[in-house]
């Protein structure tokens, strides 16, 4: 082995600024979370499905040649991909017992179901954050009373309250939203309360208090933003539950009034002729299930992305 001469090396000295320089682009918490979410294939597929279903629900009822209540009495209970010879249009999912185009009804129903689910969850979010925020921040006797109220509401199975409310209020999507929102906010309120209670012990909150920040600033600026990740995950997981409630209520005959369609109503209609025309139940069933599944898996993915500590 040849001897390596010292002259071959050059002393370049310590370059502090180079050694300490930041080579990677700086990233925020949310960017980092998004990056982790993008790597989760299942969650991305689910996100794609959700976007697809929302787009279809928005677009199809507009562009479809049929309306949701238009009847084609010459070909009722038509099979899938039935081609109407009179006007040349195709019933992609066939027609139902009253001769209505199922493809149009499915996506119009998707509109109603998703609208109900999103609105109900949004209302839950507003009530839950305010209620939980107050309870957690003030604490003491107020917290005690507010939490006992939740305990009592939670003692009654929510579907039973929803059924009772649906009997009294006039049928329609708004009623469904109200009924679900009346009882659905308790979970969110508990969650926010727990988060706020642990966060308000943190040093930075005490520091803010010492510097004279008003409670509104502490809550709005320091506490709520830090509960956001948990809240987002919870919202994503609440949507399938709202979709299920809508489907369940429609299925037992408390759904949106005719001729409006929702997935639950369509599943209910389909179940009557299930033995002869299974596709009429299976199509709405697949829509309900895929949507619920997608939101559930996306929620799991978001949880992993937003809080990597919890990852199992």
């Amino acid at each position: 082995m040849s001897k390596i001469d010292q002259s071959q090396f050059e002393w370049i000295g310590a370059n502090v600024s180079d050694a300490e320089s930041i080579k990677r682009p700086s990233t925020t918490y949310w960017k980092d979370a998004m990056h982790r979410l993008k790597k989760n294939k299942a969650a991305m597929v689910c996100l794609f499905f959700i976007v697809f279903i929302i787009l279809m629900s928005v677009i199809v009822p507009w562009v479809s040649p049929y309306t949701i209540s238009e009847q084609h009495l010459t070909h009722t209970d038509a099979s899938m991909f039935f081609k109407d010879s009179t006007d040349g249009h195709m019933h992609i999912f066939g027609t139902d017992t009253l001769g209505r185009d199922i493809f149009t009804r499915i996506w119009a129903g998707g509109r109603v179901s998703l609208f109900i689910a999103f609105s109900a969850v949004f209302i839950n979010f507003i009530i839950g954050v305010i209620y939980g925020g107050i309870s957690g921040y003030i604490g003491g006797a107020v917290d005690n009373v507010l939490m006992r109220i939740i305990e009592i509401i939670n003692g009654i199975p929510y579907l039973i309250i929803v059924v009772l409310l649906m009997m009294v209020l006039p049928p329609g999507p708004t009623t469904m939203i109200i009924a679900y929102a009346t009882v659905g906010w308790t979970g969110m309120a508990r969650l926010v309360r727990g988060q706020i209670m642990s966060l308000k012990q943190q040093d930075y909150v005490i520091a803010a208090k010492v510097m004279g920040a008003k409670p509104s600033r502490i809550i709005g600026r320091h506490l709520l933003p830090n509960t956001l990740s948990v809240v987002i995950v919870n919202l994503t997981l609440a949507i399938p539950s709202a979709i299920f409630t809508e489907a369940f209520l429609s299925y037992i005959g408390l759904g949106v009034p005719v001729p409006l369609a929702s997935w639950g109503v369509l599943a209910n209609d389909g179940s009557r002729v299930f033995q002869m025309y299974p596709s009429q139940l299976i199509i709405p069933a697949i829509c309900i299930s895929i949507t619920m599944l997608s939101f559930n898996l996306l929620g799991d993915g978001l949880r992993d992305a937003l809080d990597p500590k919890l990852r199992r």
Partner: peptide, 10 residues
């Protein structure tokens, strides 16, 4: 996850 996502009536 399927069990959570598919309603019992389906």
């Amino acid at each position: 996850i399927v069990g959570v996502s598919v309603p019992g009536f389906i």
